[in-house]
Design a protein around this nucleic acid. Structure first.
Lengths: 217, 217, 217, 217
DNA sequence: AATGAATGAGGGTTCATTCAT
DNA sequence: AATGAATGAACCCTCATTCAT
């Protein structure tokens, strides 16, 4: 049997390799998906490796074949999130060449839309979100300031307000206990904080949201 | 003789008792102060008992003479913070009978003033801040809404914005890397988010801050 | 005042000493009594010093003024028990010059009588009873064997049976859940195990129990 | 190929599983065996996890892979003992359809025989023995009472006598310092306590003990 | 690759005992 | 004497990581 194994390996090593690579990807995605839920549920420190193993239905050994440590798992899960965000929100929005206010507004609404639809995703970002590059909106803020569309005391203050409000809102949304139109109201408050007038806000909000088809990852 | 004895004993015991009570208070304060720093430094879960023991320079046993568990330490430290806040900010401000905008504004400025002065305090609130009753400002928001001074889509949204912005700002302040006038700008952005006009904001901000003498605790 | 104190001390040092000695005795008895209950309640290892302190309503320091360690407390409490037993059972019985069967029988019945009346006492002996010299009955067994009143395979076996049965019975009595006449039945079974005939047993059991006035200790 | 792969995997996995199960069983047995000795040596409360770890030559982690707590270890060790007893004494004896006196007598003798052969086993039962179902003998007592073979004041008293005597005897045997024929004498005393006549006892005792081959566990 | 048994450093808690007042 | 704060050794338990199969 050992021999046949070797033979087999030799003969179809290419195919095998490819299959192997695919399986690796699949397992890795499986683990990350599980990790996402676990981190969202228990938080960065409350999460324990066993939770992930159970959630992904894999063994300890398998896990350590894909990740070196829990720290790395967290990091790669975060990175995955960011890439997912970019692929599903940032890039699509970049294409629309509208003014910063509209773009920011639309981005926030789409973002919260997903947050409400996927609690775990929402909690994960709300609780863990450490890695910087969620900063697509920050470009809009800068541009909007340059164009006097946003009138704020400073860029730093604006960014702090926007980020803090988003995170706090996510945590609230994750509880599941939110009033009607909460997300939209949050968006409006942020816009108002950025100095956009009530009329303009109402105008932007009245436009229908573009439909973005989530790209699988 | 019996009488004098009793007297002596009573006096003596009272004195001893008082000394004991004082020492207890002192040690407890020592531990809480240490815990504050440790929690601020390492976060709720990163903090380890040994850190506190070292920071307070006490033994394990002493710690457990004052607190039942680390959980309780956190809780009581938090409570202490809240009481400190109330004693030093809320109560003094309650006395000034001005309009909600001014009161909220003043409160925030004083709050950030202390945050900048005491980094550990600042980080602790920014990272740990879970216990509710930081909600003195929420009353101002409600009143302001009733008086049409604050024009926001909803109370919930306003509160989320205010809280999230404060927390994010605290974390930033705690890094020590903040631009000039950062705290004031944060205050302004919050006011703007609540729908207060720029002129009114400038007007309020131009008033000198009342001096509050920190009550020792 | 310091002077007067010295004076006083000098003048009535004798009286003081005596009072002191009495107080010592009293406190010591207090602690032992408390320890008895605690040991009975929680067992040798379950008992904790704090339990004793609370039960006796004294402070740590006081305790260590009277006892060097918990081990010593246990030992002295046990010894106290033994002395109490001797004073209240053994000595009174020694005086009655009857045959060993009657004496053993009477002794057991009195013993169980107290066990039923004082649960803590009962549990303490049942659970802790380690110190040997409960062996007053053993002399009766020896004598009874010599006189052919007790017919057993060996002294050791007889002693084992008697002791084991007593302890087991005490534990049962301590639960408070015993059938009517349980103690008497236990006594009868022991006598039967020692080879005494049923008629003789009945005869002995029918005699009224002497009344022993418990000597305070 | 897919099929062969599956097959291979299945075979392989089965084998691995089996090996795993066997190793688990072995380690568990190892720990329980060690625990038995430790508990026997130091008693329920004196025993410390480290003792078990050293005795079984395993690491902390391993221990907690098999048992949730020391309490559970004790419980499962006790349960193991009981099952061992049942398998090696009770069941074999159930087969012999003789009168209760003979069966009880034989059971006791076999029991003590093992006690003398295995000191740790003996001490464990003598010191820890809490879990009920050692009560095979109790059925014999009941039956014997019904058949007037045992004449005792009550079932409860008989049981107390029998249990207490056994435990006390075990503790004595465990010391290693016992006279010749001690176990047999204990058995005789118990029988006598149950009201069996000396002649009948001698008759039963004179019969040769059946040989029971210990079933490995 | 996958498995899961084994490891051991690390953290929380208890409690007998000491000691300054 | 009495008090009770302080001490630290000893214990239990968790969990990330390694490793033989």
């Amino acid at each position: 049997m050992a021999m046949s194994k070797v033979k087999t390996k030799k003969l179809c090593s290419d195919h095998r390799t490819q299959v192997g690579v695919q399986r690796r990807k699949k397992t890795e995605a499986l683990i990350i998906r599980a990790a996402l839920n676990v981190f969202a549920e228990k938080g960065r420190d409350g999460a324990v490796i066993d939770d992930v193993l159970v959630a992904a239905d894999i063994s300890r050994g398998t896990f350590y074949n894909y990740f070196d440590s829990v720290e790395q798992l967290l990091e790669r899960t975060s990175r995955w999130m960011v890439e997912d965000l970019i692929a599903n929100f940032i890039e699509p929005l970049l294409i629309m060449q509208v003014d910063p206010a509209e773009r920011l507004c639309t981005g926030l609404r789409l973002f919260f839309q997903r947050a409400e639809a996927d609690r775990e995703w929402c909690r994960f970002i709300g609780r863990i979100w450490t890695i910087g590059p969620l900063d697509a909106p920050s470009k809009d803020i800068r541009r909007g300031m340059r164009l006097k569309i946003f009138t704020v005391p400073s860029f730093d203050a604006a960014l702090t307000m926007q980020r803090g409000t988003i995170r706090e809102a996510l945590l609230r949304i994750a509880t599941g206990d939110i009033p009607k139109r909460y997300s939209d109201q949050i968006t409006e408050v942020i816009m108002q904080g950025l100095g956009v007038g009530k009329l303009r806000i109402a105008e932007i909000m009245s436009k229908p949201l573009p439909v973005i088809k989530q790209r699988a990852r």
